[in-house]
Simulated scan of single mutants.
Amino acid sequence: MKVICNKDKLCDAVTNVSRAVSSKSTILALEGILLQAKGDSLSLTGYDLELGITTTIDAKVESEGEIILSARLLSDMIRRMPYEVIEISSDEKLLTQIVSGAAEYTILGLDPQEFPELPTVSGEPLLEMEAGALKSMIDQTLFAVAVSDAKPVHKGSLFDIKESVLTVVSVDGYRLALRREPVKVGEDVSFVVPGKTLSEVSKLLGDPEKQISLTISKKHIIFHIEGYFVISRLLEGEFLDYKAAIPADQTTEILISTRAFIDSIERISLLISDKLRSPLKVSFLDEVIKSSCSTTIGKAHDEIACKKTGDDVDMGFNSKYLLDALRACSSDEVLLQVNGPLSPMKVVPKESDGFLFLVLPVRLKSE
């Protein structure tokens, strides 16, 4: 194999494809990138048996072929090359030269036959949507994906398509994040995408107006993103019935400034840490929210203005979970809806149903 290509394009491709490369594996090929030179292009593939990313860049191919090279080494070498043109060549013994000007590396590659075959997903795309819409849906729900193995299906986000509306839902046992967008799709379908996959997809989503598409099979999904193909397994299992988990009624509704409430909680949370855990006490009163906490190093108190209808209520929260929900809000003002001190609190937009965050309260000592 012998191929000549642009340094910047190759560097971007290697960086992005490396997101699917295993950092440590008993299969050495999974720590590498598969390079395939054919026609007038060079394709690069990373795959860790759960997530695969592949892309193709323009190149001058003087001799077709393929090789597996260490992702870490390849990335470091290319980034440090002095010129904009890079030449990669390998022989029958897998000895590979990477050259740019006077700079030259010689490393031993791996047999391309050792690289596992990516799953195939055939058929027409299930849906197309703007990259910006998908990115906001992922970013506003990813924080609530479970990290424990208690229920593996909750380590991903549910994509629930019904009546031309896509709902993305994440839950972890302490909170729920939901985001809705209208989409053009002919069939109703539900599937769960691993959180790790969605995190990498979000990083690849660039121009918000670009169209991206999703193709799914029974066990896998492919995201088509601006020259990249991201293929991932889907998670199996029964996802939480999120509609049943969302309280239908509320006895108290509070309109707040999102930024003001975030700032207030951040001020109070200076006394809270992993070692000094304490619930955040929040009192929803007429025209004011009083927040406080008490730990072994001291006490904190703060107040912000609000507009409340309904009953006064005192609630306890994990400050991190409450902050995560508020930071994910995409509007300047939000409504907080509660149905008593021990019922989950809903955080919703003032005038739409585009997102919903559910935060479970914690018991205060007085209760």
Rank of each mutant, 00 (worst) to 15 (best):
I272L: 14
K365A: 08
I297N: 02
L336M: 07
S291G: 04
S41H: 11
T56L: 04
L69A: 02
M1G: 13
D48H: 05
A146L: 07
L176K: 04
A71S: 13
I262V: 15
G65F: 15
P279F: 08
L49S: 09
V313W: 09
V338A: 13
G101R: 01
I216Y: 04
L10Q: 00
V145Y: 00
L110V: 11
D249I: 13
R277G: 10
R80T: 13
S157C: 12
M137H: 00
A13W: 14
T167K: 11
T167P: 12
L94Q: 07
S283M: 09
L198M: 05
L198Q: 01
G227H: 03
K320Y: 08
S352N: 07
E266I: 02
K155H: 02
F159L: 03
I107G: 09
N6C: 11
T45L: 05
E124Y: 06
R267N: 05
L158G: 10
S190F: 01
S148G: 02
F143H: 05
S330H: 04
K320M: 08
G123L: 09
K203H: 14
L28I: 08
C329P: 12
E62Q: 06
V145I: 01
I57K: 11
K155W: 00
A29V: 13
C306H: 11
L49Q: 05
K151N: 10
K281A: 15
G109P: 07
E104S: 08
S70A: 11
S43T: 11
R277E: 11
I78M: 09
K299T: 14
H154D: 04
L178E: 15
I225P: 04
L134D: 03
E62A: 11
F229R: 09
L158C: 09
L198N: 02
T296W: 07
A260G: 06
Q113G: 15
I86P: 03
L323T: 08
L95W: 10
P182Q: 10
K196N: 00
